[in-house]
Structures are given as C-alpha cells and as structure tokens.
Design a protein around this nucleic acid. Structure first.
Length: 418
RNA sequence: GGGAGCGUGGCGCAAUGGCUAGCGCACUGGGUUGUGGUCCCAGGGGUUGCGGGUUCGAGCCCCGUCGCUCCUCCCA
C-alpha cells in the first residue's frame, strides 16, 4: 500500500453508510419538525474568527487547529466547530438587523488536530443547531428538548443530560476568583497540570481526573453559588421549563465547557455505551459571542453533536438501519437476451424500480449466486426465448415462487410489487 | 504532550530460533449456458510494517523507526 490515510481521518464504506444515513436523516427530520433551517458555510474561515470566537487560551485554538497561510499570506483555518461560523454568517448577511431571530442547523465535517482514539478523530462530522436573538429561558428548554427528541427518534437509551450554569462573564470572573482562593492553599497537594490551571484557568481544575485532585474538587464551591441574580433567575427558569416539559437532567456543578464563548446555561448529553469519549452532544448559551465578533449584542444558544459517536452508540445499542433491497436482478442470457436486458433495465429504472444486471457474461449459476448474495427481491432470466416471446418468469427470491409475466413494463411492475 | 498494547495475503488468525510461511472467511473459475442459498474441485493473492543487529539459521530474540488501537488530556 503506497498511500496511507491521513492520521485520524477515515473512509466510510458502503457497509457503514446505512447508520450514517439513519443519523443524518434523524437530524434533518427533527429539524424539520422543530422548524430549524439548514445553513451551509465554508470549511475554511479566517483564523481570527476561531481564535477570537472560541478563545485564545482554549485547547482548541492553542493546539488543535489546522491553520495555514493561503497564497497571499492570509491565515486560514479548517473549521474546528460550527458555532463561530454560524455567528459569522449571521453578521455577514446582516441578519441582526434584517431578521434577528433565527433557528438554524448545519451538518458537516470539522477538523481538530488531536490524538485519535475511539470516538475522537481529526476529521469528524457534526450536526448542530443554533437559536439566535432570544434570551428567554424557554429557548434553552427548547434547544435541550431538540436534543432529547433526536435521541428518542433514534431510540437511543443509556443517556444522561448534565446541566449547569456558568453565569455571565462577570459571574465567571468572580467564580474564577472564588476557585483560585479555594484551591490556592492546597496547591502543593494538586497535580502539576492543576497548579498551572490555578493560574491560567481555575475552571479547568474541575475537569481534572487525577486521583490526588479528586478530594479537593469534591469540596469545591459550585459555579451556581456565584451567579448574579439575573443568571440565577435564568437558570431557575430553565430548570422549571425542563421540569414542566418532563425533560430529564442532572445538575452537575462541575460541568465546565472548553470553549470560552459559553455563558449561563451549559449542558452535555452523555452515553453509557461509549468509551472514554462519551459526550454525544454538548452546548450552551453564548450571549456575548455575536458582540465579540463585532455585531450588536445578540444572545444565542445551541449545541453540536458528533456523528461518529452517534453512529457508535447506535451500533452499540444494536440498532439495525433498514436494509435497502434491490427490486430486481436481471439475468440476461444469450445474444438476444443480452440485447434486450439493458433496454429493459433502463425502462424499469425510469419507472423507479431498482434494477441491476450482469455485465460480465457470467454463467447462469454465477449470476443467480450474485443475485442471492446481494439480497435481491426478484430475479428475471431474460434469454433468447423471453426476448422473442415477450414473456418471462419473475422469481421471488425469498420464497422461490415463480410468476409468469409479460415483459411489458407495467405488467412487470405489478408482478414486482406483489 | 504523556502512557500501555499490537503490527503475518483483502479480513480474522496460526507457525518450539530449523523443510517451500500455513488455515478459515472472502475473491475468481469449474462441477451446472435455463434457475440461488448447501456441497465438491481448482486457482490467484505474502518482500511476515520498515531498517539494522545477534545467529550456521529470525515471522519468532535485541535495538531503532514508522503505523495502528486504547487510555490520559481535551472535547463532538
């Protein structure tokens, strides 16, 4: 093999496609029901969009972006996520003034330069929804409801929604200080990473999985204690809505998301069927993002989910996507039959029937074996005899029953249908 | 970035340091050019990831390297 795949980027072969389509169609269907509109945006954006939108100090920006200069020396980046692009799109097209309230969704590949492992690739595929222009807590509940509807539609179980509020930017600043004061006295009893985090971003300490840090983290004050009255009220209202709608959630005061634009409500939907990378989707509010990118103050909320992980979870749960069967396998046979075969296939295909036929002139036996292997519903042997008389026998492969039929397209379609 | 495990036909695996590196599945053809699944026969396909070392002799042992997988980290 002379060329390897790029590390962390994968081919998806026909065998896997049914699960992908199942997942993609579910997203589109829920989006349709909830009246979200699809947007598509470039895979490449100016680097600054991400570094400013996602946050200069985040892992994504500091070490995970595919960034390169174009031929005129401008710095471009393969999108590592979608929200920043949607915010940019919102501003680019003047929606803030024209139609400030938007419910949008997207699907597509994202890129992050990370060490690959189960459920984490360098090119991965996300779907995401974004609601722009409304601060009301009912929207938070609607967005979370979308996530649950999607999972319910797919019949996925083993799920848990982790919910938290990290407050507005002022709250986050005060919380950061509270954590700093809390952890500082015991800094010497924490792992090296956490000592660094203490200075750079104390919020991250809460994510630490090191044994040594666990007891300390367990006793740390939650972010909800430092919420301002507005944010506390917002969060209480979100919870009320969720309760009213019967949407399950677990409050997790240690849930801190890794992108800087998040404010107030944050959440993750995790699956018990996945490995270490068990977050099926994650999101939250980003009420300052649009303004940060140069637009008018505009609240927003959304989430993104990974298709790879969704597919893994579906397979883990034994979900079988519907199998698409070939309607008819034509077995052209003899000179006349072969001449008639392709023409007949063409007319049937125009009528919406899926037809395949042998193009290698193989033996009758081999062709039937092929038909059997590809799980065709019907077989029609089209030899010289059939070509001459215009009649043939359609065999239903599951039962072995043969039915005599005219080779007239309408007659055939009737036989195939039954 | 750190750690662990694994690299042998397309896939899954085997081979005490010793014969021409085998087996199953898959693939191709035939048994059977007028009807599939089973069965039988035959065939193609390998620089044992790569490079070096030890040895009379290395798929096997040693070193290096590359790759893959999982964990950590982070996140979708």
């Amino acid at each position: 093999m002379s060329y390897d795949r790029v590390r962390g980027m994968y081919d998806i072969l026909p065998d896997e496609i049914p699960w992908w389509r199942l997942a993609e169609e579910a997203v589109r269907e829920i989006a349709r029901r909830c009246h979200y509109h699809e947007v598509r945006f470039p895979v490449v954006e100016p680097t600054e969009l991400f570094s400013r939108g996602i946050g200069e100090s985040t892992d994504v920006v500091t070490k995970e972006m595919y960034t390169f200069p174009d031929r005129k020396g401008r710095s471009l980046t393969l999108r590592p996520e979608g929200t920043a692009s949607v915010a940019r799109l919102y501003l680019t097209h003047g929606l803030a003034a024209k139609a400030p309230f938007q419910k949008l969704f997207y699907l597509g590949p994202m890129f992050r330069y990370e060490k690959p492992q189960k459920g984490r690739n360098r090119q991965f595929h996300q779907y995401g929804i974004e609601v722009l222009g409304v601060l009301d807590p009912v929207v938070d509940a609607e967005v979370i409801g979308f996530a649950w509807s999607l999972m319910e539609h797919l019949g996925l179980g083993g799920l848990r929604l982790r919910l938290n509020s990290i407050g507005c930017s002022e709250d986050r600043a005060t919380y950061r200080e509270i954590l700093r004061e809390f952890f500082a006295p015991s800094a010497d009893r924490m792992c090296a990473d956490c000592r660094r985090r203490l200075l750079e971003n104390p919020l991250r300490i809460l994510d630490c999985k090191e044994e040594i840090c666990q007891p300390l983290i367990a006793g740390a004050p939650g972010s909800m204690d430092s919420l301002c009255p507005e944010c506390a009220g917002h969060f209480a209202a979100v919870r009320q809505w969720l309760d009213r709608l019967g949407l399950r959630y677990d409050i997790d005061p240690r849930l801190v998301r890794g992108l800087d634009y998040y404010t107030r409500t944050v959440f993750e939907l995790v699956s018990s069927d996945l490995g270490a990378q068990d977050t099926l989707l994650g999101g939250g509010r980003y009420d300052d993002l649009i303004e940060m990118l140069g637009g008018p103050p505009t609240p927003g909320i959304g989430f993104a989910g990974g298709f790879e992980r969704l597919v893994l979870a579906l397979q883990e749960r034994g979900c079988k996507p519907p199998i698409e069967r070939l309607d008819l396998y034509l077995v052209p046979f003899g000179d006349e039959g072969r001449r008639a075969g392709l023409a007949l296939a063409g007319t049937l295909r125009k009528r919406g029937v899926s037809v395949d036929l042998d193009v290698r002139g193989r033996s009758l036996r081999k062709q039937l074996e092929a038909a059997n292997e590809m799980n065709a519903r019907h077989v029609l042997v089209l030899g010289d005899e059939e070509a001459r008389t215009g009649r043939g026998k359609v065999k239903e492969m599951d039962t072995g029953v043969e039915r005599e039929s005219s080779l007239d397209v309408d007659a055939l379609i009737t036989v195939l249908g039954g």
